[in-house]
Design a protein around this nucleic acid. Structure first.
Lengths: 203, 203
DNA sequence: TATTTCACATACTTTAAGTATTTCATATTC
DNA sequence: GAATATGAAATACTTAAAGTATGTGAAATA
């Protein structure tokens, strides 16, 4: 589930891993609150109760930490979406519960700001797509592919459809927090998503 | 059409306006090529053949220039979309030619990077939405509203629908440049957009 | 022609990222 | 178990770029 074999054997490795995690957590917090540009390495290090020296020991530069934070957020998000949707027997159920779960994650401030909003800009589209390929959207696309294989969904370019679906979910997640009636807005957003997908559904 | 009363009367004002425009043009170029963060004020000023002193005379700070560049890009984009779609008598034609024209604009490197990708992050969602409210998406939403008024379109929250439409167009504009068969991808993207909108079309 | 104004230049300050060097606890070797 | 080696983290330094304060000269105004 995690990256391969990271069990700290010696006490020194244990400590080091702990401060690495502390930096990661501090980064997540401060990137979420202040944004990439305004988040100072000094502030992040202080929040992790170390100096900038420790920071540069564990991470190449600021961008490397941000990258690691995005990966961890995506990894957690994927796990949660998976957990919720995997039970469903009917494919369409699995897809739509996945969409809902993904939306729930996307609304959370840290995920919204770090992954959805700043991720592509800070890391660049290429690198960001690379990360996405492994985690959250990959799940949706996987289900879409199964639906296509089963003949339930008729569309040639599942990758494209997946990205469009993703775009709609992300935009919705950005609008939701400022919406006056979130429940209603969410229901309407879901309608739009259904409209998009159902038109390619086998009749 | 432009901001109110900007005719330079004296020769000094004329010169000043010219260097302001030069800075704006240089900013557009360098922001597009290097991105906001990597674009140095020094480099922008040099490209406009002035010093940083001149820059700070005309703009509060780097962000202010970026803001002005976004506004000018949005203004031009809106004008072009308007020009192309206004002729159409049938409302649905007007909408879809508008969508196509908007997509054409969004593909252009400067618009794509500065407005679509970096705009919301650099200026913040609130300010970016404020700008959007006046220009490009406003046109689409206007047409959507007319369609609703005419009973052609049945959906409660046109603002939401407009944003979703916008999100899909923007995502498509990001994917298109790296697509192997752009014509085909674009056609498929259009299919998805049609699917989204047609399901709310009066039958 | 004297005086003011303002567009722009020059010189300086500040901030934050990044680098080089040092220290000290833990781990390893003999 | 004393001697040595390693590497996690601290400290001290360098660099780059944004932003500020002040100066200057050409064009406007009186």
């Amino acid at each position: 589930m995690d990256k391969s074999s990271n069990d700290p054997r010696t006490r020194r490795e244990e400590y080091a891993e702990a401060t690495r995690q502390a930096l990661l957590a501090a980064g997540r917090e401060i990137f979420a609150r202040e944004g990439y540009q305004a988040a100072g390495i000094e502030a992040i290090s202080r929040a992790a109760r170390v100096t900038r020296g420790a920071f540069y020991h564990h991470f190449e530069d600021k961008k490397a930490l941000f990258d690691a934070v995005v990966v961890s957020l995506q990894s957690e998000a994927a796990a949660r979406v998976q957990e919720i949707s995997k039970g469903k027997a009917k494919l369409w159920d699995r897809l739509y519960t996945g969409v809902d779960a993904y939306l729930d994650v996307s609304i959370e401030p840290a995920y919204s700001r770090i992954v959805v909003q700043e991720g592509p800009v800070v890391l660049g589209n290429a690198r960001f797509a690379e990360i996405e390929e492994k985690f959250p959207m990959a799940l949706l696309k996987a289900t879409l592919k199964v639906l296509k294989r089963e003949g339930e969904l008729i569309f040639d370019d599942i990758d494209l459809l997946g990205h469009m679906l993703d775009a709609v979910i992300c935009e919705l997640s950005i609008m939701l927090p400022t919406s006056t009636d979130q429940r209603r807005t969410r229901a309407r957003g879901r309608k739009i998503i259904e409209a998009m997908l159902d038109s390619f559904r086998r009749k």
